[in-house]
Design a protein around this nucleic acid. Structure first.
Lengths: 151, 151
DNA sequence: CTTTTCGTGTCAGTCTTCTGACACGAGTCA
DNA sequence: TGACTCGTGTCAGAAGACTGACACGAAAAG
């Protein structure tokens, strides 16, 4: 019932499986993040800032896979809640470098632990070699997909 | 600058890479689907119906990774546009089995071809063995993630 | 047969994210 | 110097998806 030559066979499509895996991961993350009052984008933003302090709104948006506009409203919330700070004046150009506050850092610590547990669970049945292989393959897919961008 | 033992290292995180790949795929699909006036969920719904005619609203929702409510409004649109049909009365219970119209099928054909080209591009640099390996690994991840569901 | 559980379709309201558009500053190039 | 491109921050409106809640029918459990 599913081997019509024309269609994309959902049962065997790597694209569909990729979406399925990504959704499962997002659901699992939401599950552990909800008790902390945090969404996935929320967390991603904080984690990005921890690893690369001073990132701009646009850079954060790209890193969290949302638009600048969406990231901006998120940053406003995070700023209001005291998790991050942005200068009122741009030191150079229009870019407003964002930084974590101590409170934001504490908040991130719990979230990070929760997310790490999810990732550990996801990778539980995989050997080191398989993880490396998965990493390599996914990187390749991304590169191939983006190649056709400007073409 | 990124090897603090506590955080989830974004550069080496398979979870992050998974999201990145999934986003790249979605973007690429939106790109080829837009000229056809179709969104990804739109297309997913049609493709599901082609392979499993008579699916209910709820089943379609699960297959397209959205809620019943979201799928319902989409189905209303698709019905209004004449791409699908649903009986006004439920043959049994409350379930309304949905089917593609010839018009829906024609519409899907173009979309399916476009999506297939994206998937081909994504898989371009991969050998058959790698694709099989990717399939196996992703399946494992999904299973592991869902295991902790009811725990 | 009765009760309970489960899945379904649907209504209503809210929220998040996106698309479109604008002005501004920095860097590039002639 | 001046024109041009590029990236950025921001405002406004629209679209899409979600959460919460309800009634109903089927299937399972008693």
């Amino acid at each position: 019932m599913s081997q019509d030559g024309a269609g994309v066979n959902l049962e065997t499509s790597l694209g569909y499986l990729l979406k399925e895996a990504s959704t499962a991961l997002r659901v699992a993350m939401e599950e552990v993040l909800r008790p902390l009052g945090m969404s996935v984008t929320h967390y991603s933003c904080l984690e990005l800032l921890a690893q690369r302090p001073g990132l701009s709104n646009s850079e954060l948006a790209r890193g969290a896979f949302v638009t600048r506009q969406s990231m901006n409203v998120l940053l406003q919330t995070l700023e209001r809640e005291g998790h991050v700070t942005r200068p009122t004046e741009a030191p150079v150009g229009k870019v407003l470098p964002t930084r974590l506050t101590p409170r934001g850092r504490r908040s991130l610590e719990k979230a990070s632990a929760a997310v790490r547990s999810v990732e550990v669970r996801m990778l539980a049945g995989l050997t080191g070699a398989e993880r490396a292989e998965a990493f390599r393959i996914l990187r390749g897919m991304i590169r191939s997909l983006r190649e056709g961008d400007g073409a």
